[in-house]
């Protein structure tokens, strides 16, 4: 009779313990950043560049395809439907709120979490299983400096940069869709630019930073949490993706709630 309640309680307790461990990991990472040795900064910067190459530049084609198709489909439909109602000026708000502010950051962060988050978790878990983390510590090199901080920085830069690219391409793709459906390009730009406020830009940038922190932290945490068995590697990758996606959706929801 009490077994389901006990199981539920254990699940909640495990989740709270996990959140506590994640918070401790984030705190230790931030603290480690304060005493990164001068020479270590150069090493960490090299790792950061490699990670940006993988997370941002290699993901760019995927983001551009997603952005252009999504924007083309939404704006094509919207121009036709809003035109029938004589409300084409709402197209600007639709573009800014739905695509630039909401879907752009959300889809970009989900793509990066799915693509790079799992890779980061799997790579760090493999390093741990292969004894590389232990070797680094034995040599006096902090794995937080060598592995986590560069990935943390690279994830923030990459997510932010990719969101900007997503939004720019979405606006251009929206132009093509609007023009294909009979709208004059100058009118499209007037509507979109008139709808774009500084607040929208800030919300988008803040989301980019926050989603970048999520994608940089949760996969690193999950990757370094493994104890040493190879079977833990896919589990860590999967948990990193699931954890990041949930965190991204929760944050996105909070933004809607706070800035509605």
């Amino acid at each position: 009779m009490t077994a389901p309640v006990a199981a539920l309680g254990q699940g909640v307790a495990r989740s709270i313990a996990l959140l506590g461990a994640l918070a401790r990991f984030s705190f230790l990472t931030l603290e480690a950043a304060r005493w990164l040795p001068r020479a270590g900064r150069r090493v960490a910067f090299r790792v950061l560049l490699r990670q940006v190459w993988f997370t941002a530049l290699q993901a760019l084609p995927l983001i551009l395809v997603l952005s252009s198709i999504l924007s083309f489909l939404v704006i094509s439909q919207a121009v036709r439907e809003l035109g029938r109602l004589g409300a084409t000026e709402l197209l600007g708000r639709l573009m800014v709120i739905a695509i630039v502010r909401e879907l752009g950051p959300l889809i970009t962060a989900l793509a990066v979490a799915g693509r790079s988050g799992t890779a980061i978790a799997a790579e760090l878990a493999t390093n741990k299983v292969m004894g590389e983390i232990n070797a680094l510590e034995g040599m006096g090199i902090d794995p937080l400096h060598y592995h986590v901080l560069p990935r943390f920085g690279a994830a923030i830069l990459s997510v932010l940069g990719l969101i900007i690219m997503f939004d720019l391409v979405a606006i251009v793709s929206g132009l093509l869709a609007a023009t294909a459906n009979g709208m004059v390009p100058a009118r499209y730009f007037d509507i979109v630019l008139a709808s774009l406020a500084l607040g929208d830009v800030w919300v988008t940038v803040t989301k980019g930073l926050l989603f970048g922190i999520i994608v940089g932290t949760i996969p690193s945490f999950q990757g370094l949490r493994v104890r040493g068995s190879p079977t833990e590697i896919p589990v860590a990758a999967s948990q990193a993706a699931v954890g990041s996606i949930i965190a991204i959706f929760i944050c996105s929801g909070l933004f809607v709630f706070l800035f509605a």
């Binding site: 070797a135 034995g138 040599m139 006096g140 090199i141």
Partner: peptide, 30 residues
């Protein structure tokens, strides 16, 4: 620990670096 040389069991080399970069790592970092 940087005052001590350590060869862990297995070898503990970083697999994404060349042998040269592995040897250089402690010097570059420390």
């Amino acid at each position: 620990r940087r005052q001590v040389g350590y060869l862990p069991a297995g070898d503990g080399l970083l697999h994404n670096l060349s042998l040269r970069d592995n040897v250089a790592l402690p010097l570059r970092y420390g």
